[in-house]
């Protein structure tokens, strides 16, 4: 089912291989330049009218961000995840708030949490969840939550802290066997 759709779309868009997760869920890589036209075709022709979510994954080792657009066709019970890759050094995405107004919220969050720009998206630069944040966007992989909390907050007096992995291993296997 998804394969037929992929074969059909591949004739006109630069798509990667189809990664099928379940019968009704698959993911595919899309070129950024093709994204908008593909979204419009999926919505208007193939019944993928529902934007389930829009989010990002930081592949810091590969120097790029992955944007995932999860498109859902409820009537046919199919979900297609479109993966668009952006250069991590200068991440700029294309706004789709005019296709789905609710996308403006997702884009505003991605701007704040990952530092991905979406020029033209309404109120994209307004603070969303964080207030007065000046550090690097916190959902990036190189933002160290532990270091941040150690710098920002102090421990209660008398608190003992263990590394969970070694502590649990010691507790479960006191004699060192695995």
């Amino acid at each position: 089912m998804m394969r037929d759709l992929h074969d059909h779309l591949k004739t006109r868009y630069r798509l990667g291989d189809l990664a099928e997760r379940r019968g009704n869920l698959a993911f595919v890589d899309v070129e950024r330049a093709d994204l908008r036209a593909l979204l419009v075709e999926l919505r208007d022709v193939h019944g993928f009218t529902h934007l389930s979510l829009l989010t990002a994954v930081d592949w810091i080792e590969e120097g790029r961000f992955q944007l995932t657009y999860l498109m859902n066709n409820r009537a046919a019970n199919r979900t297609l995840g479109l993966r668009v890759f952006l250069d991590r050094a200068d991440p700029v995405g294309d706004t789709i708030h005019d296709l789905w107004p609710t996308a403006a919220t997702y884009q505003r969050e991605l701007r704040e949490m990952f530092g991905i720009a979406f020029p033209g998206s309404p109120r994209v630069d307004e603070e969303f969840i964080l207030e007065g944040w000046t550090d690097m966007p916190p959902y990036r992989r190189d933002f160290d939550t532990l270091a941040y909390s150690q710098q920002t907050f102090s421990d209660r007096e008398g608190r003992e802290t263990h590394d969970p992995r070694s502590h649990m291993a010691k507790k479960l296997y006191p004699e060192g066997q695995r």
Binding site: R22, L25, R165, M168, R178
Partner: peptide
């Protein structure tokens, strides 16, 4: 063993 549980690269969406 959940202390050493590694899961292969992949992605999914459950709703």
């Amino acid at each position: 063993n959940v202390l050493h549980w590694k899961i292969p690269r992949g992605e999914t969406y459950v709703a």
